[in-house]
Design a protein around this nucleic acid. Sequence first.
RNA 1: GCCGGAGUGGCGGAAUGGCAGACGCGCGGGACUCAAAAUCCCGUAUCCGCAAGGGUGUGUGGGUUCGACUCCCACCUCCGGCACCA
Length: 827
Amino acid sequence: MGYNPPPEAVMALPYDPQHFEAKWQEIWAREGFASVDTAGEKDLYMLMMFPYPSGDLHVGHGRNYILGDCMFRLFLQQGRRVLNPMGWDAFGLPAENAAIKNNTHPREWTVRNIGRMKDQFRRWGILYDWDKELASCEPEYYRWNQWFFNRLLDKGLAYRGSSPVNWCPSCQTVLANEQVKDGGCERCRTPVHQRELEQWFFRITEYAERLLEGLDRLPNWSDKVKTMQRNWIGRSEGCDVRFRLEGTDEPITIFTTRVDTIYGATFMAIAPEHPLAERCRATAPDADYGAFLDRLRNQTRLQREAEGGEKEGRFTGAYAVNPFNGERLPIWVANFVLMEYGTGAIMAVPAHDERDFAFATRYAIPIRVVIAGAGMGADTVLAEAYTGPGTVVNSGPFDGLASEVSKTEMGIYAEQRGFGKRIVRYRLRDWLISRQRYWGTPIPVVYCDRDGIVPIPDAQLPVVLPTDIRFGEVEGNPLAHSPSFLAATCPRCGGPARRETDTMDTFVDSSWYYLRFVNPHVHDRMLDAERVKGWMPVDLYIGGIEHAILHLMYARFFYKVMHDFGMVPNDEPFQVLFNQGMITAFSERTGKIEKMSKSRGNVVSPDALIARFGADTERVYTLFMGPPEKEVEWSDEGVAGAYRFLQRVWGLQDVVAAAANQPGGPEADEKLRVATHRAIRKVTDDLSRYHPNTAIAALMELCNSISDWQSKASGEVVREAYEALLKLMHPMAPHTSEELWQLLGHPQSLLRSGWPTYDAELLARQTVTVAVQVNGKMRTTVDLEPGASAAVATAAAREAAAKWLGDKEVVKVIHVPDRMVSFVVKG
RNA sequence: GCCGGAGUGGCGGAAUGGCAGACGCGCGGGACUCAAAAUCCCGUAUCCGCAAGGGUGUGUGGGUUCGACUCCCACCUCCGGCACCA
């Protein structure tokens, strides 16, 4: 059996995707398959994370968009009304750096790249509703960043504050905590420095609890992303306790999660940046105290981490009084206490905290057990800190309580006496949005000598980026050197004012673009309440895992704020989140398998690939490589396999034509029909759970079945199989399937030809192969009618397994209908 | 250290607790060809065996079960995140 080539005369042309791919791209665009009027009823809103228009797309980028297009086409074939827009995250540093390098304007570079990328999408056969296209660098878009900034300001959710911030000397700007990775700038890896600066913040900490709680209502987000966000938010329950600075009435507050150990505190430790540390400069006993402080404060995060947890400190000379027992505790400055977390001061309990233990050991500070675990007593000498639970000892009135109980009791005690408070703290910091760069949304405020910080009234928005800027001529932010931009009028008093020259973090843009897509042509307001109510939330959001914290947390924050403002109908923007894995490749330069990137020299360009094999080959291969959520390595051999598959499908048109009038036979017809309908069932199921890889495997099997039965089945059945194959493969290989569909004589696009349904009755009446086990070992199989009774199945299985059963006693028979029969025998 | 995910042929990978290795790549053999490429057909976990057949196999060790890649416990390795967070 196999491929019997039909006579030369009727042979179709060889598979040549160059010949028809562009044609179909044009037809799809012209017919407007992707356009949706959002004034109408919502069916489904799907979205890919909008890209930064960097210009060069490689096959690794393709994965995201190809997967999305595959799902989109499936939905369209199934007759659904789907909003699937695309836009550009168009502000950002690369454009500005390119402008400096080439002496152009960031806009030119950006617009050119957008053009290139749109063209790339088209050549991949990817459809979007381009009528909804937006670019965040357009005043039409970013004016709403400014408008929303004003709303945040109204509610006290935007504020200007001073705090130690991360400064990247290479990018010449500050960064949010979320944008610092391993102590370096996430973009350029330059170590960041801490600087005390006045900057604009969004009060995301106000929403910490709700950001945390909301995660529980997102069953269709991966645990990975949710865990990352939970870690980032870093909730911990504890107690603030107010100590007194000895010899004064001055309080010094610490935060602890282990108030149950407070009788074991033998010293207090404060961060080098703590105000008290500075005040003790003159009186501290160690001569190098001041130098020590300066050294710690000037350390970068990276340097601090490089010290590998080595505990170091100096005695300040001051003492704190423990409000629980009146004991005086020496106050030390310690390198392991962070000013950013809690109050920047801790009570140190060496017996029950590893860090405190290490520090106390080094500086010969007493260690006092107050929690006795199993086998421990009040006088146990510890070789290491005991951090587990136990019975409270050496703790006055609390002795004998279980540590968990005393944690609550002591908290209540402190509250009643007025020197403490049970409290929840978070690791999450407020979102620093100021950037000292040009290519971003101007922060809409002015500084007036008389009125101070004055926001630009809504009616005067947008504050537009000036265009008379020469790039590369001055250090730092060119806005700060633009006299026309700087000079402003105070909206309040009409006097002269200086305009804010910082721009907004580009993550502000991406925090709400998915809302603008619903009403991109509404010009008098940010959002159209009706349409937003109709279409939000996004049902399916596809993007890379690299945004697990940054974009996805900021967007959730914005959405919750908007919910509180009554602007959106619910409080989580993305129902289902699908994170596709990276495509990697071997890099000659580094000798490793790594993420594709220009700098690693391991990119595969889609241009050459499309020129040689066509876009469908790249699509099929990309989807076939492995499950889309996993990381996979690109292989040129694998591409050839995808090409071969498409070629075989193409070649089958001759087979179908040759079989057209043949009568077939009942057995062959049934066999091929079963193969066809099983494929329909499997492809439908697999695609709906985002497994295009196994869906393609099923298509390959159907293709093999058609080859196998083409000469024996009737022309009608062969054609049915082939038409199903074309419909089923359309989401993965849209050009090839459309062309073949048309060659079969169908005037309508596959996008309007429906999705096949399978004949459940046909599949249900097929004989089933039932496994036969003896003592748990798989021995043989029997073919049975579906739904065979236990008696029938057991009898057949007993006969088939006679060889293994012999005359042994059958103790038990387990029958799983249509699956297996298992004998348990004795002896 | 804590949290999440993963470990299956030469490779990418399939398998609601019920025939492990679908499908593809690669490799071997064959057909076609003067020859090669392309294409098509057959084979391809491993060990014993000419074969029929049988043994062993899903990171390691235990457990639950008639039956475990799948569930439970302990451990190892890799990937990702957080990390002196009090």
